[in-house]
Design a protein around this nucleic acid. Structure first.
Lengths: 214, 214, 214, 214
DNA sequence: GATGAATGAGCTTTCATTCAT
DNA sequence: TATGAATGAAAGCTCATTCAT
């Protein structure tokens, strides 16, 4: 508990991750220098290497941890949700909500993929693929059951994820809209987008009190 | 093409822009070195400065030119289109089509904004704002006329643009789907997303033979 | 011919080689920093890279050039020399003489071999091998003709080269002995060492049971 | 052997010396990092400092201990040997034998002298001088008694030591020749080299006008 | 005696940029 | 317009060493 100069113990690694997240989000991975990072943390550049093995590995870790969290939490969010409509609604609500609270991780995981070396790149893309597949499966089920009408499930999957992820680039906490309003707006856009017109399919209704609305 | 080594005349600048586009798309602005760029063009690094004034200005020019083109061509695409529905359909078709043919410029203009210095940044963001406003206006009109039903025009604007722009990250020419099929899929997603349910709103019809479909 | 600041043109590379030779001789390759080298030459560290591709390649070049020179000049020194005795004498005189005038190159080529990366190492060792073979051939011929008497040609080859090369570690120009005296002393040692004692001089015999032979 | 990880007690120092010897022999003093050394020993870099005071002092100690051993054992090897010829033979046999069994120490003591700081350097060079003097004395005695014929005792001393020490750079245990054969070969070379050719063997003469003698 | 985290200096190398030729 | 050599700053990383625990 001494904590004399600079930071100590397990705390330092946490500080590095936090500062790294911020700096990469702000300037990009290539543009962030380890000198900057060290200064932010309050240690000497060389001291970073007591905690990370490489700038590249720091990036990989940040991205991989994020994607693992994302997958794990998606699992929780979808547990107990039945039927394509309810599951899609849950997916949207979860995705938007997660992206609002972990904007930086999400942004980095999307925009700095190209800075990963091939080995790390493959690993992350594989994980991301399994996230996308969750949505694709929901859409496929919906199409099969006739509750969704989409020309191409693949295209719709990419489009929906892009739509939802776009949030990161404009959302600021404390903005004009409440979290729930934002979630509701996206739910409506997405659900309308994939449900068949004219039929009264989506009973929608007031019951869609968002998960995560707490 | 032709003029291989030590290329000269007006061609050199064109070669620089082309190579710059490719390299920035591939590696990112920060990660692209002028040495790489010069090598790609077939000249010495110092010779670049006979054509550009700064790495920063090269980026700014590439992005600004792109956004100007985008705006100009959008204008053409919307000319003669009447009514929110038709105009939205035209917007989507134009945006998707443009993004398919100029993927690199689009991607750079989105992802390298943060690398612009403040002066250039402001200029570009302003231009981008006026592009977004075109879509926002269409949506507002549609809401006013009761043909669109969106919770929040601002959110919908961002969402639609993100949805459409996402295309750049997966589209490869010669893929599974034709250009027209991709355009159609996006039109359907977007239009459905913003048109009110139950009413038979979208008169759709065969007339939507896509602009740019040539 | 302007020569404004720092050094220019082909001269710089020559200055780098010269300074490199001196510094590596003095401190060793690992201990010589490119900052030192650049300072010695009168340019910035980064500017070295306009002339060399790598610290490693500089070393390799210095060593390789030396060995090539050595081989080429040995060829000249042996041309027209007939018979093992005369050829051995010429070899010794040449080797000693060369080592006195190019002490630094010789020393580096012997002591910094281990700092070469494998590719360069192989190349240099091969060249060195062909230098050694010249001596081995002379000895073999002499033995075949009965003018030399050595137990093992290989061992003798190594021993003679070591003997002669040892010169580099004590010779200073302007010392107690003239160049010719030094050459003469070495010729005598070597020639005597390999020529048969016509009488029964070394009674050798079983009594030389080695100390430490246990 | 045993005591694998985090080895402690008097053993650790021994492990450090052993590993240090190996690493310095292999990579050179400058190129060996204490991190490498610690890893080899199985402790953390910082822990080395419970055993050594400085990287420099470790080197000095290794070299000094070696030279002291060398001197002590030479004393034993020469005890009871009478007469220049017998003493020279004993010297050669001892030197070769010692160099075959302690190749690494010998090599380091020769090649890393320049890495010693001035104080340590002086001390070691003084010890080495007294080793060389043993040989010089033998040669001088022999010349005085007329059993040796050398042009210059100093040169001969250096040459013989270089010849014998060269062994370290090619000898590998288990090679083509037995230890005794190697010793015999060197004895013959050296003894022949310094003993007078009873006849007019080396006619020396003016004809040895050296190439390069210009 | 060992550890883990820190320091501060230094490393090789790359960078954008300049400029005389 | 192109070149080749230079600059000055900075990059990622390694080093010997220290020291509280």
């Amino acid at each position: 508990m001494a904590r004399t100069i600079g930071s100590h113990g397990p705390t330092t690694m946490e500080a590095i991750r936090k500062a790294g997240l911020r700096l990469i989000f702000q300037h990009g991975y290539e543009a962030m220098s380890l000198r900057q990072l060290a200064a932010e943390v309050g240690i000497q550049p060389g001291s970073l290497y007591n905690h990370i093995s490489t700038k590249q590995e720091l990036l990989a870790e940040l991205i991989q941890d994020h994607i693992n969290d994302l997958l794990r939490e998606l699992e929780l969010a979808l547990r107990d949700r039945q039927g394509p409509v309810e599951r899609l609604r849950a997916f949207v609500a979860f995705h938007v909500s997660y992206h609002m609270t972990r904007k930086r991780e999400v942004f980095i995981a999307n925009s700095e993929l190209r800075s990963l070396d091939p080995r790390n790149y493959e690993a992350v893309v594989a994980l991301r693929g399994s996230y996308e597949r969750r949505l694709a499966d929901i859409l496929s089920d919906g199409v099969a059951q006739g509750v969704f009408d989409v020309d191409d499930v693949q295209v719709a999957t990419f489009a929906i994820i892009a739509l939802l992820t776009g949030l990161c680039s404009w959302y600021r906490p404390g903005g004009r809209l409440t979290k729930d309003a934002i979630i509701a707006a996206h739910e409506k856009l997405v659900l309308s987008g994939v449900m068949p017109r004219n039929a009264e399919a989506a009973q929608a209704g007031g019951d869609r009190a968002a998960p995560h609305s707490g």
